[in-house]
Structures are given as structure tokens and as C-alpha cells.
């Protein structure tokens, strides 16, 4: 099966209004910049987006928020942008906040074919409301369900024509987990090579999880908090 697509626009061409999509990245690190731009161009609406964060005013998922394309955001930490806050407070945008490790594990469960996981995160808090609790060795755990999503969109450093992916540094974050969780997984990569060029021992995401892959262009890789020390 041919996994290579020509562009981000082709990769997202069948994502429709009202779809549930996952987007990899942590803050602005390791986000699928090309696919986000393509979704903005496509102009589809009513999306439910699952991503650890919601971007900033003029970058990342913030670009989709500005076009009012997002109906619901499922994240662990949001609100780094003013438009997000405005839409949330005006009731235009629905937000579900879940613990970061729970978010990661619900992706993992989906990719591992497990219907749910138990986690102690959120026990005794409002996150536990309405959830089944079980005790193991006298400690309480919440039952959290695996995600079911139409599309997962991830960004990797290198990929090959078989869809195998390698991530770089902390740009890995949620990407390999979300890559496993999509019914359709789209990967954009900085470098796309023929099968056989990546060392099989170095693959983070085996190509079986990846349905479409393309070489992204013009990566901005914006830095959210530039912190440096002076050379003495």
C-alpha cells in the first residue's frame, strides 16, 4: 500500500466537519505545523481536538481557534492565548481538561488494543466524578477509557516510505502515542527516506501504525519560552 502523499492538503483531504482529531506535540514543540496549516486552509469546522496544549494566539492549534474551527478541546493544559480564553468564557468553545499522564495513557491504550487503563491520577478530585473507581492493594484507581479518534496527526523527525518514524529530542512527547491511536494516522516528517535507510533498531513508531506520510516544508519550530544563559 502506498503511504506517501504529496502534501499536507492531500493528507487531510478527507477530514470532514465534526471530526475528532488528535494532534501531537507539547506546547509548540513537535507539532504538525504543515497539517495544521492545511486544516486552516481547508476551513472545516466543528472539530474535536485532542492535544496536550492548544497552541498560542498565532501559532499551532491557535491558528485553528482563530478561524473558529474547534468545537471542543481535550487537553491537560491550555490558555496560553487570548482568543482561546475569549471563546471559552463566551461559551463558543468547550474544554475538557484531563491529567497529562491520563491523556498519554489513553492514547497508549488505544494503540495497544486495551479498552481502558487504571490510574491513580485524579482520585479524590473532580476528575473522578462519574468514573468507576477500583482498589488494588488498598490504593484507589480511576478507570479511564482508551481514546477513539478518526484521525491522528503527528510530526516526526525522520520517516521512511513504509511509514516508520523517528522523533528528535523532546519533540517526541505525545507523537508516538497519538500515532498509535488513530483509525487513520497522518505523519509529517522533516526528512523522508526510502525504506531501508533507517536503522530498524532506531524506529520509534513502526509503520503499521502510519497510514499517510509526507515531507513537511518550511518548519518554523517556534520557541515558546526562550531561556538562555549568558556566556561569561
Amino acid at each position: 500500500m502506498k503511504k506517501i502523499v504529496a502534501s499536507a492538503d492531500e493528507a487531510v483531504s478527507d477530514i470532514r466537519d465534526g471530526a475528532t482529531i488528535m494532534l501531537g506535540g507539547f506546547g509548540l514543540c513537535g507539532i504538525p505545523e504543515n497539517c495544521i496549516a492545511a486544516l486552516v486552509r481547508k476551513g472545516i469546522k466543528g472539530l474535536t481536538c485532542i492535544s496536550n496544549n492548544a497552541g498560542v494566539d498565532d501559532f499551532g492549534i491557535g491558528l485553528m481557534l482563530n478561524q473558529k474551527q474547534v468545537k471542543k478541546m481535550i487537553s491537560s493544559y491550555v490558555g496560553e492565548n487570548a482568543e482561546f480564553e475569549r471563546q471559552l468564557l463566551s461559551g463558543e468553545l468547550e474544554v475538557e481538561l484531563i491529567p497529562q499522564g491520563t491523556l498519554a495513557s489513553r492514547c497508549l491504550a488505544a494503540g495497544y488494543g486495551m479498552p481502558a487503563i487504571f490510574t491513580p491520577a485524579g482520585v479524590g478530585t473532580e476528575v473522578a466524578n462519574g468514573k468507576e473507581t477500583r482498589h488494588f492493594k488498598d490504593k484507589a484507581y480511576l478507570l479511564e477509557l482508551a481514546f477513539e479518534v478518526d484521525f491522528a496527526i503527528v510530526k516526526a523527525w525522520k520517516g521512511d516510505t513504509e511509514g516508520n518514524l523517528i522523533y528528535r529530542e523532546t519533540a517526541r512527547n505525545f507523537n508516538p502515542l497519538m500515532a498509535m491511536a488513530g483509525k487513520i494516522t497522518i505523519a509529517e516528517v522533516e526528512e523522508l527516506v526510502p525504506a531501508g535507510e533507517l536503522d530498524p533498531d532506531h524506529i520509534h513508531t513502526p509503520g503499521i501504525y502510519v497510514h499517510r506520510i509526507f515531507k513537511g516544508v518550511h518548519y518554523e519550530k517556534r520557541i515558546e519560552q526562550r531561556t538562555v544563559r549568558k556566556v561569561n
Binding site: 507539547f26 506546547g27 509548540l28 514543540c29 513537535g30 496536550n52 497529562q100 499522564g101 491523556l103 498519554a104 495513557s105 492514547c107 497508549l108 523527525w157 522523533y167 528528535r168 529530542e169 523532546t170 519533540a171 517526541r172 512527547n173 505525545f174 507523537n175 508516538p176 502515542l177 520509534h204 519550530k221 517556534r222 520557541i223 515558546e224 519560552q225 526562550r226 531561556t227 538562555v228
Partner: peptide, 24 residues
């Protein structure tokens, strides 16, 4: 390095013997 940040989204470095892994 934009690919190398901490949980506060600040740019950082690694020390010898460091390791990267996914969020799960």
C-alpha cells in the same frame, strides 16, 4: 534548540547520560 524544552516550555540542554522518551 526548539526540539529541546522542559515541561515549562523553556529551552534547556541535556547533561551527559540523558535519555529521551515519550509522555506515556
Amino acid at each position: 534548540d526548539p526540539d529541546l524544552i522542559n515541561a515549562g516550555k523553556q529551552t534547556i540542554t541535556t547533561v551527559p547520560g540523558s535519555a529521551f522518551f515519550d509522555s506515556a
